[in-house]
């Protein structure tokens, strides 16, 4: 069960952010912003693993209270999931499947003619779906 999900665009500006606890949102924003550095490094860094063909980047940061996972699509959209550290039951595979679901949601939304790529996503149905993915009720 993710605590926060963020979708970040090609230019590293936030397109969508949703968290279960709105009070912590600012705090999450900071954390996610910092984790972008790691993402950038993993994608573009000199020492990146050249044979990593996966879109899933794995654990980016393990903070005291949260863990941050990253995923970058081929179109350079970045998805970030923040998970509570105390939630040890959440395995890697579950995280991957969450990312896949988010990716398919995103692919759907980009085909929506009312959505202009590059702008923040403000669709209610999208937000609802992401919330469902976060809480695992999909």
């Amino acid at each position: 069960m993710a605590v926060c999900v963020a979708i970040i665009g090609k230019d590293n500006s936030p397109k969508f952010l949703s968290s279960l606890n709105p009070d912590e949102e600012l705090c999450f924003q900071y954390k996610i912003l910092s984790s972008l550095d790691i993402v950038e490094e993993k994608i573009h860094g000199v020492n990146r693993a050249t044979d990593n063909r996966e879109l899933f980047l794995g654990l980016l940061y393990a903070l005291e209270t949260h863990k941050i996972y990253g995923y970058v699509t081929n179109t350079k959209m970045k998805f970030i999931i923040v998970v509570d550290s105390s939630n040890i039951a959440l395995r890697d595979n579950e995280i991957r499947s969450m990312f896949r679901k988010i990716h398919s949601e995103y692919a759907d939304i980009i085909c929506n003619p009312f959505y202009i790529p590059g702008e923040p996503i403000t669709f209610k149905s999208f937000a609802n779906n992401i919330k469902n993915i976060m809480t695992g009720t999909v």
Binding site: T50, R53, L55, T75, R100, S104, I110, C111, P117
Partner: peptide, 16 residues
Amino acid sequence: GFRIIERLTRELPRFR
């Protein structure tokens, strides 16, 4: 093209 590529590349590994 811009929009559909997201869907088409969803399952594919990253391009080198």
